[in-house]
């Protein structure tokens, strides 16, 4: 049996890499991918604890997270295309109209 601590450690590493991607990259596409990575890290923690407790509720929550991720990608890429049409760029530094 895989120790729960190792699953959580892998989940933490993936979440941190995703957070790093959102913080240091400027390309909006890669930032969206990093958000997907963070959602996946959360999924991994759900699956690990579901295995640990022998309870499938975690699997159901993972399905919900997948649906939310799909919706988020659809809307995020729609915003991305609208932004590219107006600014001819997907750099977040170019979308600073509302920035204080």
């Amino acid at each position: 049996m895989i120790p729960i601590a190792h699953v959580i450690a892998l989940s933490a590493v993936l979440f941190a890499i995703g957070a790093l991607g959102v913080l240091v990259r400027r390309n909006l596409v890669v930032m969206l991918m990093s958000i997907e990575l963070m959602l996946n890290a959360a999924n991994l923690a759900f699956i690990g604890f579901a295995r640990h407790h022998g309870d499938e509720t975690g699997h159901v929550f993972v399905l919900m997270v997948i649906v939310v991720a799909a919706a988020e990608v659809a809307v995020g890429l729609g915003i991305l295309i609208a932004l590219f049409r107006n600014r001819a760029s997907v750099d977040v530094e170019d979308a600073s109209l509302l920035k204080w």
Binding site: V67, A71, A74, V75, L77, G78, I79, I81
Partner: peptide, 12 residues
């Protein structure tokens, strides 16, 4: 999912 689909179509 339905609202996301409509939103994506309207945005893009």
């Amino acid at each position: 999912l339905l609202s996301a689909m409509v939103g994506a179509v309207v945005l893009a």
